[in-house]
Amino acid sequence: MNQWKLKDIVLLSMLGVVFGLIYLAFFGVGNVLYGLLTPVGLGPLSYELIFGIWFIVSIIAAYIIRKPGVAFASETIAALTEVLVGSTAGPTLILAGMVQGLGAELAFAATKWQDYRLRILLLSGVTAAMVSFPYHYFMSGFAAHASWLVITMFITRMISGALIAGLLGKYIADQLAATGVLSGYPLGKERQQREEQRSA
């Protein structure tokens, strides 16, 4: 925590707030999908398909700031925002956010917060899915679901985590870096170095 600078904290908090709002909006998307999939008999999968979106801030923040704890903190703040703005899932959502953030953090911890290549970002989406699934299994009572369905849901969530959180997260962060606003953060600096090398 001590190696966090004030500007890192403000940035990750700001990202948390922005994505907290986006997360809320995606509950609506989930509901629409739910309505579409239920007649086909796949209703429970609707949220799992887009579950990755709810991990995305972890990956964006960690990829930009590259310090221990960033994935966890940003996700927690996003969840806090959702609750304060008035969310669907209740105060336990904060807990859910912490669990998801922890999951995303695992992948980065495994590389001692040194490696931020695409594969690690994808992995982070998967670990977030892996850790968050048992939590929801317990809290939402998936125990009452048939087991084939539970397994399908789990796999869907992992794929969604890798693609939506990992891949899309990296894409958004790279787009931001291209505008030059991240020059004060590790991602921006890495980019600058690469450009210098290329021009040299």
Partner: peptide, 30 residues
Amino acid sequence: YKQYAIPLLANSIRKAERVAVAMESKGFTG
């Protein structure tokens, strides 16, 4: 969407950086 979303985020990041500087300029040590 991209034209709005990316600048909105970029501006927010810029603001975040400035707010941090502003806080320190007001003697915030943490």
